[in-house]
């Protein structure tokens, strides 16, 4: 302060324009800051490293010990030796029930509860950041992370697959052969579909995050909700419940690997994801909009 005692606010204001005549209506600045927080955090780096390690492990394991036909593993493992793209698909299939949801739960559960826990929430709100805007930015950042995680797994999978097994034509689940370019496009389509599914889950996490000041609690709650959804979906006796489950159509991404593509299941999955996103984002907004912030 000794240096700055001569600097009055008027002097600072005279040197630089501090305040805009009007607030910026749309600005990527806060979202970018949010993304820098997420992707700059060591904990998240570790999480992403684990996600990326799975396709590497799969590719190396299959290289050393190729699966014999008729094994009990996921469908895509058998195709790996024939086309490297299958490493990406196998990795996505393996990570979908736990690792990918875990990553998304960690980010979305942290959204509001994390800021409340460090106390930064009160400073963001008095900056001011409108509560709806805060939720929108937090949700957008979680969705970007969901897509980034999916693309990371697929990207590392494709890379490892191409290095160890090469590319070339790809045999679809329905038996037809497609060219390598179309194969890459289909893998990208799978990523987009799974990304959207994970975004619907991020809405659940956002809602959980608005309920508590403990980010770990919100993450665990979101994971319980997701894993329970997987478990219930596997109990045929309660099939009346299945259409309402978050994860019911996640595995429908296989439909993108048939010829012709079966859009019925995919459309249903996208609608279910949209419904979950709308319901839980609205619930988060209703909960957080008028909540007393005492953290």
């Amino acid at each position: 302060m000794s240096v700055a005692e001569a600097v009055t606010p008027a002097a600072v204001a005279s040197e630089v324009r501090a305040v805009l005549p009007r607030p910026r209506m749309f600005s990527p600045r806060f979202l970018l800051s949010e993304l820098m927080l997420i992707f700059g955090r060591r904990r998240n780096w570790a999480g992403l490293a684990v996600l990326a390690a799975i396709p590497v492990i799969i590719a190396v394991a299959v290289k050393f010990d190729p699966p014999s036909g008729g094994g009990g593993g996921p469908d895509f493992f058998a195709g790996i030796t024939e086309n490297g793209l299958f490493v990406a698909l196998a990795a996505l299939t393996v990570e979908l029930p736990l690792f990918l949801p875990l990553a998304v739960a960690a980010i979305s559960g942290d959204a509001i509860a994390g800021e409340a826990n460090t106390g930064t929430l009160r400073y963001l709100l008095t900056t001011p950041v409108h509560r709806t805007r805060l939720l929108a930015v937090k949700y957008a950042a979680a969705c970007i992370f969901a897509f980034a995680s999916t693309l990371l797994v697929a990207g590392v999978g494709v890379l490892m697959g191409l290095i160890l097994f090469g590319g070339g034509d790809m045999t679809l689940l329905s038996g037809r052969q497609i060219g390598f370019g179309e194969g890459v496009l289909r893998v990208l389509g799978v990523c987009a579909y799974l990304g959207i599914c994970l975004c619907s889950m991020a809405a659940v996490g956002l809602f959980a995050s608005s309920l508590t000041e403990q980010p770990i609690g919100a993450m665990i709650g979101t994971m319980i909700f997701t894993v329970a959804s997987f478990i219930l979906d596997n109990i045929p006796q309660i099939d009346w419940l299945h259409p309402y489950l978050l994860t019911h159509s996640w595995m429908n991404f296989g439909d993108l690997l048939r010829d012709p593509v079966n859009f019925t299941g995919l459309r249903e999955g996208l609608l279910r994801a949209a419904a979950y996103a709308v319901v839980f984002a609205t619930a988060a907004w209703a909960r957080f909009g008028g909540k007393d912030v005492t953290s």
């Binding site: 630089v16 305040v19 607030p23 950041v129």
Partner: peptide
């Protein structure tokens, strides 16, 4: 500062350092 829609992004760096300087 990034969260503040009124703050001028062009001067963010200068203002942040001025504020830090002011409190030593």
């Amino acid at each position: 500062d990034a969260a503040d829609r009124w703050a001028d992004p062009a001067t963010a760096g200068v203002r942040v350092d001025a504020a830090l300087d002011r409190v030593g």
